[in-house]
Amino acid sequence: MTSRSCPCGLPQAYEACCGRYHSGSAAAPTAEALMRSRYCAFVKGDAGYLLRTWHPRTRPGTLELDPRMRWTGLEILETTDGSAFHAVGTVEFRASYRGGSLHERSRFERVDGAWVYVDGEFVR
């Protein structure tokens, strides 16, 4: 990842990639794009975006992010459905942080046309 590339791992600059989703000027068009933007929100400490893109059925009332957490990379392992032609999708990913990694299979659904995170299960 170059210093100008988006923290989600794609080569575009943050503003042209996940930044436009965070600012609300665009909506993530796929479940994978939403997954990448949510990872980026963890990197940036944007709890508001994480809550806004969480399914109302499973969204917590508040979200406290640890400011000491240092996310270091995202690897998308598999996506199932989640395109413009689907109502649901899954994204399996590995998110690395200083000292370890998190491997999860996340479920996404569309609510009023927008992709939202439903829940996930940790993969060992």
Results as ranks from 00 to 15, higher is better:
Gly9Phe: 11
Gly9His: 05
Gln12Glu: 15
Gln12His: 14
Ala13Gly: 11
Cys17Glu: 04
Cys18Glu: 05
Gly19Phe: 08
Gly19Lys: 04
Gly19Tyr: 09
Arg20Gly: 00
Tyr21Lys: 08
His22Asn: 11
His22Ile: 11
Ser23Cys: 10
Ser23Gln: 13
Ser23Ile: 02
Gly24Lys: 09
Ala26Ser: 12
Ala26Phe: 04
Pro29Thr: 00
Thr30His: 14
Thr30Glu: 11
Thr30Ala: 05
Ala31Val: 10
Glu32Gly: 08
Glu32Phe: 12
Glu32His: 02
Glu32Lys: 10
Ala33Ser: 12
Leu34Asp: 04
Leu34Ala: 12
Met35Gln: 09
Arg36Ser: 08
Arg36Pro: 01
Tyr39Trp: 02
Tyr39Thr: 03
Cys40Phe: 04
Cys40Asn: 05
Ala41Trp: 03
Ala41Ile: 05
Phe42Lys: 01
Val43Trp: 01
Val43Asn: 01
Val43Gln: 02
Val43Glu: 00
Gly45Val: 06
Gly45Asp: 04
Gly45Thr: 05
Asp46Tyr: 13
Asp46Arg: 01
Asp46Leu: 09
Ala47Ile: 00
Gly48Arg: 10
Gly48Val: 06
Gly48Met: 06
Leu50Ile: 15
Leu51Met: 09
Leu51Ile: 09
Thr53Tyr: 09
Trp54Gln: 00
His55Met: 08
Pro56Lys: 11
Arg59Val: 06
Pro60Lys: 09
Gly61Gln: 13
Thr62Ala: 14
Leu63Gln: 08
Asp66Ala: 08
Pro67His: 06
Met69Phe: 11
Met69His: 14
Thr72Asn: 04
Thr72Arg: 00
Thr72Pro: 06
Gly73Leu: 03
Gly73Asn: 07
Leu74Ala: 07
Glu75Lys: 14
Ile76Ser: 00
Leu77Asp: 06
Leu77Met: 11
Thr79Pro: 07
Thr79His: 10
Thr79Lys: 15
Asp81Leu: 15
Asp81Gln: 15
Ser83Glu: 13
Ala84Tyr: 00
Ala84His: 11
Ala84Met: 13
Phe85Lys: 15
Phe85Glu: 13
His86Lys: 00
Val88Leu: 10
Thr90Ile: 07
Thr90Tyr: 02
Glu92Tyr: 04
Arg94Lys: 14
Ala95Leu: 11
Ala95Lys: 08
Ser96Met: 04
Tyr97His: 08
Gly100Arg: 03
Gly100Ser: 10
Ser101Glu: 11
Ser101Cys: 10
Leu102Ala: 07
Leu102His: 12
His103Gly: 03
Glu104Arg: 07
Arg105Glu: 09
Arg105Thr: 02
Ser106Phe: 06
Ser106Cys: 07
Arg107Asp: 01
Glu109Pro: 00
Val111Asn: 02
Gly113Leu: 06
Trp115Arg: 03
Val116Ile: 11
Val116Ser: 03
Tyr117Cys: 09
Val118Arg: 12
Asp119Phe: 04
Asp119Ser: 14
Gly120Cys: 12
Glu121Cys: 02
Glu121Asp: 11
Phe122Tyr: 08
Phe122Ser: 14
